[in-house]
């Protein structure tokens, strides 16, 4: 299965350098249809996305994207709010809380 990357031109360029051929270049406007199209492709196993771009998605689409198992969507960046929220809901405690929060 292929590794794919979705994001703006700057984000995907580096992955092209690493040899990734399945690249979806998007803008803010067409981000949602592009990611949904990429997720329908059964030949993609892992889809890398810029975590800051995920805010362009509607909440239910974002939920669908984050819960997807095939392809596995890996947000790259500092934003770990989705996982944090999920942990909080399931365990009942914010385990990602640091002393700074």
């Amino acid at each position: 299965m292929d590794i794919a990357v979705i994001g703006n031109e700057d984000f995907v360029l580096g992955f092209r350098l690493a040899g990734v051929r399945r690249v979806f270049t998007t803008t803010e406007e067409n981000y949602e249809p592009t990611i949904l199209k990429a997720m329908e492709d059964e030949s993609i196993g892992v889809l890398a996305a810029d975590s800051s771009d995920l805010k362009f998605l509607k909440p239910h689409v974002r939920q669908k994207v984050m819960d997807s198992i095939q392809p596995v969507v890996v947000p790259i960046g500092r934003d770990e709010s989705d996982l944090r929220e999920k942990v909080k809901r399931a365990i009942g405690v914010d385990l990602y809380k640091t002393e700074d929060d």
């Binding site: 590794i3 580096g14 690493a18 892992v46 890398a48 819960d67 596995v72 890996v74 809901r89």
Partner: peptide, 24 residues
């Protein structure tokens, strides 16, 4: 550097998905 990131990303994909499934 991007090849290294790709390797780490694949490892993270497995761990994070397992974690999501476990939470569900």
């Amino acid at each position: 550097a991007f090849e290294k990131l790709l390797e780490t990303m694949v490892l993270a994909a497995e761990v994070e998905t397992t974690m999501k499934r476990l939470l569900d």
